[in-house]
Design a binder for these strands. Structure first.
Length: 739
DNA sequence: AGCACGCCGACT
DNA sequence: GTCGGCGTGCTC
């Protein structure tokens, strides 16, 4: 049993947002674990306060002689905080972050939240008493009190920010005044309920046989023996949401709470309405646009038991529910469930870890499950349920055709639109129906280069070429840098500069030229930057205010337009060249989802996939709407190269402002982990990141593949040890990424 | 956040 | 001297 315990103090203040180290007394050894709630002496007066053990260790980070001992274990060790701290411990171990980083993701930022909370100082004296109090203060030279009383004379109710800020009063001066009954400090906890008053009561829908079967299978098990996560593999429109609703309902009836994770983009007004209609004010929502304070409010309501359901993106997973019984992850294949910051946790794996801690059930849903999840399901580690039929009988699968762009070129057609797509667009417009055109690249042209020297225009801060935009500027899609399009090539002075490739803006221009009359909307990062940007565009299109919606991937995610009968995928290959082992999977999912947008009410939809690689299995399988076929081909490839889920993969990203420092550290790290893995694993690199430089920071990559996760964890520890005594460690940053 | 410590002006 | 208010800084 380790000698010391790191403890996070149970006080919400910025200055205390770190751990303190305590000695573990003999009688408590073997009884402590990360997440234990303890009582500890704190501060000069050794007053006993509560805290949580975050970590047990033998390494003293503080002078052991001056270290205090843990007092006792505090009762009620089952508090939510304990569960979340234990989860942070799991995240730290599993994804290789520091405990503090893990804690900060799991326990929402408490700092500066207090500031935002509305607190007021109110005067409790009448005119007479105020006068008396003032003269007493003058007599006693109580300057701080006088300052406050003067201000309160003008305005008997002052906001806390002003009292603490401009008037510079501290608790030391305020407390005696409050005790004397001169003032009152009011802390009004204002909860803004984003769900308030939306939607009408919507009674539960009657489930069809397949849906009911899943619900029965799973609810019988909640709190019982089979705790395996469930994967619901249901085609678009098969009614997964109704299953979720019923599962949540039953969870609540059993006295437990539920978290629903959905991709940010799917958190639309309709979604909010749907949940509110069913669960009233017992449901709340979080999203990334909310301020830290607003999100904290909602988490606080959950902690107090005012809620039964929380809906939101990745971070909603950490809702402090004390009786969590169900975690639903909709569209579980979405890459947004993987965090981009340290710790780079995956919501699916982390949800499973949390469910284990609280004895809850995890339900995953997707029309195109991730290869990982389907693999687990086939191996029997997940329970698999299928919803094959679309819930409403009149929707039909679309007709998909694949167009070989090489043949178009041979036939002399250099346009973005193949002959087939153009014909279908004409008839679609002629019939007064709507269409969507999908292109996975925004901007006007792909890149811009000089026709005489061939040099592309590059971002000075990032290692990428700039994208031409319609407004005559060149924009960097990595850091946002933008310059006016130069009149002459900066390196050779030639005036012949031209754009190549295709972006959404250019498609918009081309549609305008080739289909004059057609009403066009464009949706991508540039047009949705403002708040409510998505919503406005989608709603306008839904109301039929445009015939054609052009956009990047955001148009294919979770929004139904009954009027859309044609979907055109202009360049299916773009995502195939990502150079990532997942690029086929991403492409397949994208194409399948895009195709699923067409024809959902009665009218059969048509889909045209344009590609230079019509024979690629991701394209073929998507055209045939055949997930099994895709999975079969994909898993062969992953097995062969031992990529996840057939093996484990750890990526080290080494970043530094100095390329040499990054390179040197990367080399050393590659050797260190290669040493650590031995014959168990395979190390590649160091190599430049696909985009070497972003925002003036160089990034190098080292990969380690192994059959067993533990091999990689050991390698991670070795890498951390290496960085500890690397001379230039302060200049170099190391990030781990497990997948 | 809460508490000790030290500074400073006022008063027995 | 020394008492009490008030600002500062530390808490394993």
């Amino acid at each position: 049993m380790p000698e010391f315990a790191n403890v996070i103090v149970d006080i919400s203040h910025e200055r205390l947002d770190r751990t303190f180290q305590y000695r573990i007394p003999e009688r408590l050894k073997d009884r402590l674990q990360p997440g234990s709630r303890v009582r500890i002496p704190f501060g000069g007066g050794n007053r006993m306060i509560e805290g949580y053990v975050t970590e047990l260790t033998d390494r003293a980070e503080y002078e052991p002689g001056r270290m205090k001992e843990i007092g006792e274990i505090a009762g009620g060790g089952l508090a939510v905080e304990s569960e979340l701290i234990a989860l942070a411990g799991w995240i730290k171990e599993h994804y290789g972050s520091t405990m503090i980083q893990a804690l900060k993701t799991v326990m929402p930022v408490k700092d500066r939240v207090k500031e935002k909370e509305e607190r007021w100082v109110r005067l409790c004296l009448n005119q007479e008493e105020l006068g008396a109090a003032r003269s007493l203060c003058i007599k006693k030279h109580q300057t701080a009190r006088l300052r406050l009383l003067e201000a309160l004379k003008e305005n008997p109710r002052l906001p806390w920010a002003e009292v603490a800020g401009r008037l510079k009063l501290t608790m030391a001066a305020l407390r005696p005044m409050e005790e004397a009954g001169q003032i009152r400090i009011e802390g009004r906890q204002s909860y803004r309920n984003p769900a308030a008053g939306t939607g009408l009561e919507t009674p539960p829908v009657r489930l069809n046989e397949a849906q009911q079967f899943i619900v029965n299978q799973l609810t019988g098990e909640i709190g019982r023996k089979d705790r395996r996560p469930a994967l619901i593999f249901g085609v678009t429109g098969s009614g997964k949401t109704e299953v979720y609703m019923e599962l949540i309902s039953r969870t609540i009836s059993a006295g437990r709470q539920a978290i629903v994770l959905i991709p940010e983009i799917a958190l639309t007004f309709q979604t909010v309405q749907r949940f509110c209609g069913r669960f009233g004010d017992r449901v709340s929502f979080v999203n990334s646009r909310m301020s830290a304070g607003e999100r904290y409010d909602q988490f606080e309501r959950a902690r107090k038991g005012e809620l039964d359901v929380m809906v939101g993106p990745r971070s909603a997973l950490f809702t402090p529910f004390g009786r969590l019984g169900l975690i639903i992850i909709d569209e579980e294949h979405e890459h947004t469930y993987k965090s981009e910051n340290m710790p780079r946790y995956h919501a699916r794996e982390t949800a499973i870890a949390r469910a284990e801690l609280c004895g809850g059930l995890v339900v995953l849903g997707s029309a195109t499950p991730s290869v990982e999840s389907y693999y687990q399901a086939l191996a029997g580690r997940f329970r698999l349920f299928r919803l094959k039929k679309r819930a409403s009988a009149d929707s039909v699968l679309p007709q998909v055709s694949v167009v070989d762009l090489r043949k178009e070129l041979e036939a002399g057609n250099q346009s973005v639109f193949s002959r087939e797509l153009r014909k279908k667009m004409e008839s679609c417009l002629g019939n007064g129906q709507q269409m969507m055109l999908f292109l996975n690249r925004r901007g006007y042209a792909g890149f811009v280069s000089c026709r005489s020297c061939g040099k592309p225009m590059k971002c000075p801060h990032c290692d990428v070429s700039l994208t031409a935009h319609r407004n005559g500027r060149l924009v960097c899609h990595y850091c946002g840098y933008s310059v006016p399009l130069p009149k002459a090539c900066p390196s050779c002075g030639s005036p012949y500069i031209a754009g190549f490739g295709l972006g959404t803006q250019k498609v918009e221009a081309l549609v305008g030229r080739e289909f004059p009359g057609a009403r066009v909307l464009r949706m991508d990062y540039d047009t949705t930057a403002g708040k409510g940007g998505h919503q406005a565009i989608l709603e306008a299109f839904g109301r039929g205010e445009a015939d054609i919606l052009i956009g990047t991937q955001m148009i294919v995610k979770g929004h139904d337009f009954p009027g859309v009968t044609l979907v055109g995928i202009l360049a299916a290959d773009l995502s195939l060249h990502a150079g990532d082992y997942r690029s086929s999977e991403v492409t397949f999912q994208l194409l399948t989802q895009a195709a699923g947008r067409a024809g959902r009410r009665g009218i059969p939809g048509e889909v045209v996939i344009q590609t230079y690689m019509p024979e690629h299995y991701a394209v073929q399988a998507a055209a045939a709407q055949d997930y099994e076929e895709f999975y079969h081909r994909e898993i062969l490839y992953r097995n062969l190269l031992k990529y996840p889920p057939a093996g484990c993969l750890m990526a080290l990203q080494i970043s530094s402002a100095s390329e040499e420092a990054a390179e040197e550290a990367a080399r050393g790290l590659a050797n260190a982990i290669s040493d650590s893995c031995g014959t168990e694993g395979q190390v590649t690199g160091p190599a430049d990141a696909p985009v070497l430089k972003v925002r003036d920071i160089y990034r190098k990559l080292v990969y380690a593949k192994a059959a067993k996760y533990s091999t990689l964890i050991a390698a991670k520890d070795r890498a951390e040890a290496y960085m500890k005594d690397f001379p230039g460690a302060s200049k170099v940053q190391l990030q781990f990424d497990f997948s």
